[in-house]
Design a protein around this nucleic acid. Structure first.
Lengths: 125, 125
DNA sequence: CCGAATCCCGGCAGATACTG
DNA sequence: CAGTATCTGCCGGGATTCGG
């Protein structure tokens, strides 16, 4: 069965479903945070260390959105000093395989894309 | 083998590879245009019709980027009126399967995500 | 028919400083 | 430790107009 018969999944509703997910996971940090949480439960500080370059602000916002969408569970422990733990929900875990598919494609094709882009820049300035 | 042993693909270089691809395909229109071109060669006007809501400007920019990255081939026919055709390169076609994986996930999980988000809005305002 | 050029706006994201 | 507050710049993207 030819591939294009499947792409109706993407184009289906004028791209609304695709857009809905893209809007959620295609920002700068979301996928990286999800992948990091695939290790298991982590504290805010751990995440801040393990996701290189993320600011406190963006980590907070990213986690809030993930929690809101039911992809990450947030647990506050009533202690001093405070301890807050984050973990993927089953829903969140289910995002990993398609993310890996994309990452696999990236690893395989990005070098050639970079080359193509470099060549284009040369021609056009 | 547990999943998290694979997520190093995503986290690998601090997310640089992932970011490289995300920066390219995760804008508002790219994936939609690629999916539309999976049908085969199309003219600018065809694309403009078949991708609902895209402006001429964004279609032009999206196609230029895809051409630059070697995912789409652009063919200009020396005629009047001018005719310009766009088609996926093999490189571009190879993006379809991972895109479908993501779309499949979206179709399966977006309803639940919407529900979770709606519930969250209710609680928090 | 196929674009390029210009103007404009909202929202993302960084830096920094402060709080329970 | 785990956030919030505020200020700021940047850029994606829409509308519109003009050119070959």
């Amino acid at each position: 069965m030819p591939q294009q018969e499947h792409t109706c999944m993407i184009r289906g509703d004028g791209g609304r479903t695709l857009r809905a997910i893209l809007d959620r996971i295609c920002n700068k940090w979301t996928l990286l945070v999800v992948a990091t949480l695939d290790q298991g439960t982590l504290r805010f500080g751990d995440l801040h260390e393990q996701v290189p370059g993320i600011s406190q602000r963006m980590l907070t916002l990213t986690l809030r959105n993930l929690e809101r969408d039911g992809l990450v569970a947030r647990t506050v422990h009533a202690e001093v000093p405070p301890r807050v733990e984050y973990a993927l929900t089953p829903e969140g875990k289910s995002l990993i395989p398609p993310a890996l598919a994309l990452a696999g494609w990236a690893i395989e094709h990005v070098p050639q894309i970079e080359a193509s882009r470099a060549a284009y820049e040369d021609r056009a300035g």
